[in-house]
């Protein structure tokens, strides 16, 4: 028996070394270490002014935001449908109703003021290729008011909502029926379906033209990248994938968690079942091993 334990120990050690080498060690060599996300957006300056939502509503009108953006919560419709908007701007400008529910306040102010810098897309956009959203030339007080207004109308988002607001205009999520132009409806006939597909194709072509690549469908990202990577990536895409066309979107930590929760649900919805059933199966085999041991001892007593 002692000898058998010794053999087992040798096998465990050798397998352990090999496992360590090909998994944690090799992966640490393949994916250079990076600092985990803090969601502090420390490169951006905080706006230390108190905003007034009412004046903010006015400022939004005065500065022409609604020329491109809808604010459905305030009854302001989109000036264009998504496909035409994408033809003009590359991507459909977001509805502003719930932006402040997912985007960090400091980031929001900085983004409005100087979008390319906040999004960290200086390598993609500049004077030769202007970013579709212009810089903001109003006063800092106006800015604070606008942010205050957006905060006042924003409703808390559930995981799916957070995903739609934060990622949904560029990324499909086909395992949830989500497309860049919205939730895939139930089609009444082939024509409706074909029309939808055409709109989607046009939108995607515009998006590709704008970004240089087609943003991937995120359905399986929870398994291909894992929650930590997604979290760190969303906070600062350039840090993990230098030169990527993905803008920094400035989500709050909480909103990022919501998005991840949604991706977990869509990409790995049986995880809870797995975790739960696993315990029972393991318990079963522990008991089976004990019984097998007792039986084996009984039988071998006769031959030893």
């Amino acid at each position: 028996m002692n000898k058998e334990l010794k053999i087992l120990a040798i096998i465990v050690i050798l397998v352990g070394i090999t496992y360590w080498g090909i998994e944690p060690y090799a992966h640490s060599k393949m994916h250079p270490h990076h600092e985990p996300a803090t969601f502090k957006y420390e490169d951006l300056k905080a706006l230390n002014l108190k905003g007034d939502p009412q004046r903010g509503a006015q400022a939004i009108q005065n500065n022409g935001c609604t020329g491109c953006h809808s604010i459905k919560a305030a009854g302001i419709p989109a000036p264009m449908d998504p496909v035409s908007a994408s033809a003009s701007y590359g991507v459909n400008p977001p509805d502003l109703s719930n932006i402040a529910a997912v985007v960090d306040k400091k980031f929001l102010a900085n983004f409005i003021k100087h979008p390319v810098k906040a999004a960290k897309l200086e390598h993609k956009f500049g004077s030769s290729k202007p970013y579709p959203m212009p810089d903001f030339f109003g006063s800092d007080q106006d800015l604070a008011d606008i942010v205050a207004y957006l905060e006042s109308i924003a409703k808390p988002q559930d995981p799916r909502g957070a995903f739609k607001v934060a990622c949904g205009r560029c990324h499909d999520l086909r395992y949830d029926g989500w497309t860049v132009i919205g939730q895939k409806p139930k089609f009444k006939n082939e024509i409706e379906k074909a029309e939808f597909e055409l709109k989607k194709a046009k939108y995607e072509a515009n998006l590709k033209n704008y970004l240089g690549t087609t943003p991937p469908d995120l359905s399986m990202y929870i398994r291909s990248r894992g929650p930590e990577y997604i979290r760190d990536f969303v906070e600062d895409p350039q840090k993990l994938l230098h030169g990527t066309a993905m803008p920094r979107v400035g989500l709050t930590e909480a909103a990022t968690e919501e998005v991840i929760k949604h991706l977990e649900h869509v990409g790995d919805r049986k995880k809870e079942k797995r975790d739960h059933l696993g315990i029972w199966v393991l318990a079963y085999f522990v008991i089976l091993s004990v019984l097998a041991y007792l039986w084996k001892e009984k039988i071998w007593r006769e031959v030893h």
Binding site: L282, V286, S289, A292, W295, K296, W300
Partner: peptide, 12 residues
């Protein structure tokens, strides 16, 4: 009988 024991442990 011995194999079954080893097998059960392996299954864990």
């Amino acid at each position: 009988s011995k194999d079954f024991f080893v097998l059960s442990v392996f299954m864990i």
